[in-house]
Amino acid sequence: MSSAAGWDADTAVDELYAAHYHRLVRLSVLLVRDVGTAEEVVQDSFVAMHGRWRKLREPDNGLAYLRQTVVNRSRSVLRHRGVRERYTPPVVSDQRGVDEDALAEERRRQVLAALRELPGRQREVLALRYYLDLSEAEIAETLGISRGAVKSHASRGAAALRHLLEDAR
């Protein structure tokens, strides 16, 4: 993405969509769990980025803006939705011969459900760190918090997530 000088807003949307749309939707799914909601959040974020392109100008700025907007909007969707769904440890079938797909599906469900149990910041830090592989500095910038806060959210979040997943086992 080095030859990006002179992208206009439309080109920026096309290029960043091609490179990042899927990952951003998946990031949002980690935050809001529901795929349809995540798609809406990310589409809105692209529209917002298009409107800001004159000021962003560089692909890196565009991507940073998208990430921040996706996280912010995911959070505000959750707040809007209001009711936080309670976590219910899944019923694990003891049937023999449960096929692999169903087991994998169940594990995915457990991870997403456990993420939803975490405080918002911890969930966001874990998603940015372990899914997008962002550095502490990048996470701090995306969330507008200190690096020290990133560290503590990451370690608390990781411990809490492990704990929840062990309980579910």
């Binding site: 799914v29 980690l30 594990r107 995915r108």
Partner: peptide, 18 residues
């Protein structure tokens, strides 16, 4: 943790929205 999070969403195929 990285593997868990990737497993959880890597097969999500969002609707094409460009």
């Amino acid at each position: 943790l990285r593997r868990l999070l990737h497993d959880a969403v890597d097969d999500v195929q969002p609707v094409h929205a460009l």
